[in-house]
């Protein structure tokens, strides 16, 4: 199992914020990528690439629709790190 950083949420929010050009303070756990941030499918893929590169995890294509909120992104990355 990979070392899960204590501030995983904070790190992930920063990575996602950089990927979509937003202020990390906007990315609360309940914020919805599609409805609240106007992320489309292309941007969603960019977010996933940023997550994969920064956290050295692999996120399958079919998992992408499950990452609707910032909180869900944190859960999926945590689970991916636990599997490593």
């Amino acid at each position: 199992m990979a070392n899960i950083p204590d501030n995983l949420g904070e790190q992930l929010v920063k990575v996602i914020a950089d990927a979509i050009g937003r202020d990390p303070a906007e990315l609360k756990p309940e914020v919805n990528f599609w409805n609240d941030l106007g992320v489309d499918s292309i941007k969603a893929i960019e977010i996933v690439v940023a997550i994969e590169r920064n956290f050295k995890v692999s996120i399958r294509d079919e998992q992408i629709p499950q990452i609707a909120t910032v909180g869900q992104a944190i859960d999926i990355v945590k689970k991916a790190l636990e599997k490593k």
């Binding site: 292309i42 893929i45 960019e46 690439v49 940023a50 994969e52 590169r53 294509d61």
Partner: peptide, 19 residues
């Protein structure tokens, strides 16, 4: 357009590349 764009984005995802 959307299908074509998603295809290219999907390729970047598969290769783990930024645009």
């Amino acid at each position: 357009v959307e299908g074509v764009a998603e295809c290219m984005a999907s390729a970047l995802k598969d290769a783990c590349l930024y645009q």
